[in-house]
Write a protein that binds this DNA or RNA. Structure first.
Lengths: 229, 229
DNA sequence: ATCTCTGCGATTGTCTACAATCTACAGACG
DNA sequence: CGTCTGTAGATTGTAGACAATCGCAGAGAT
């Protein structure tokens, strides 16, 4: 009956520019301090400055770039304090979310989370670091989504973006991937048991340890770039 | 010595537009559902569409307006769920802040907060509702600022904006103003005593009661506008 | 030698005109 | 009479040119 044709979506140039630039920043392709000149972007992307400017205003509001009037736009630099703040905020938001999810007592939710963790452990065995990272992100994103709190989700996206950027910039030390994955299991157990205080504490510790690890080998200049051209 | 001349600031048209529109939305002058047509704004403000569009993109990112491509831009409508979410998020962020502030143990902070509350009580005696509201906002803003957590401050601004908008849209029932002001005193006492759990709980209750009051007499359509022209 | 001022290049800010897209309504066709 | 189609008007999306502003280098004065 329904041929199930792929949805045709004609994203505006502004939106395409936004996604492109944001992704480049979050993956570390565009490093902190890199200067973004509208005219250059215009030539590179083959579009006029108008949509680019609008995309830049959005990125600026999201806190990923900084603009000095009549002077230039650069990818925002990250200090160690920024990183600590990002992780403490993550902790706050996720702890809140986990509380909501536990109260909802939805078996589907827990099953979905457990599936994700199991996949993560498997990917860890294969030493597939990329998949582990993606599944880890999925897990935490899912946790927030399940709260059903749209404002929380929106604020989470902002923080999660910044966290992604930080992750891409640090040179990860080789940690035991299966261990990272397994760390999620006690949290799931606590959630299934409906033990909010314990789940909160486990999550807090989980994120704090991740944050400490990142903050530890953060040299402010490690990923910074002088000129950017 | 210092003539204290007013700082000359040549804000860009984009910025002026942004501030103007945002203020109009937050004060309820522009009600949810009201449609913002770029061309009309352009004529009214006597500027071209380009800076207006950039301001609109920012407001959109801030979550105050919604744009449907090739169709129009409207002030975002607020459901009862939105309001509950705004207040629960306020609660979360402020509770976090108060914990930081207590830990910092800075006497100046507590003094400043107490001064604000005292002024608030005085304004309440005079039945000066406007001043009470401003001081109440000052109090909560100050609490967040004192945390020294810049990411928290930034997220707070987003939430506080929305809360301001909601406050402006409900037809406040005449509550005892001095009572509102006095409600802050136990919180201050707990903070001075360094009692984090008690302070958290008081703050949570304080915000929840305010939220309930607002949510109670919220009719989704009360402040909505059909056409907007 | 040092200070001041002027001009230049680079970059963002703004304006105007034109293109693309959506909704609604009127008219053709069965 | 209902359904489809096409056209008009409104609105946003994009382009390209021009204006405003900033930082800096270099000339000239002291």
């Amino acid at each position: 009956m329904k041929p199930n044709l792929p949805q045709i979506k004609n994203l505006s140039i502004r939106e395409q520019t936004l996604v492109t630039l944001r992704e480049a920043i979050l993956t570390g392709e565009l490093k902190p301090g890199h200067s973004l000149i509208e005219m250059d972007l215009s030539r590179q992307l083959g579009v006029s400055r108008a949509p680019i400017r609008e995309a830049l205003r959005i990125l600026n509001t999201e806190g990923l770039i900084e603009t000095i009037p009549y002077h230039g736009t650069t990818v925002r630099r990250l200090t160690r304090t920024d990183i600590e703040e990002i992780y403490s905020m993550r902790s706050l938001l996720e702890t809140f979310a986990v509380e909501q999810v536990i109260r909802a007592r939805n078996p589907d939710h827990l099953r979905r989370l457990r599936d994700t963790v199991e996949d993560m452990i498997l990917a860890g065995r294969d030493n597939n670091i990329n998949t582990v990272n993606i599944l880890d992100r999925d897990f935490h994103d899912a946790l927030i989504e399940m709260s059903g709190h749209s404002l929380l989700i929106s604020m989470w996206q902002t923080v999660a973006m910044k966290a992604r950027q930080v992750m891409a910039l640090v040179n990860r030390r080789n940690t035991d991937l299966t261990q990272i994955a397994r760390n999620h299991l006690p949290l799931l157990d606590a959630m299934e048991g409906g033990d909010i205080p314990r789940a909160s504490e486990l999550l807090r510790a989980h994120i704090a340890s991740a944050g400490d690890l990142v903050a530890e080998d953060w040299q402010s200049d490690s990923a910074a770039v002088g000129d950017g051209s």
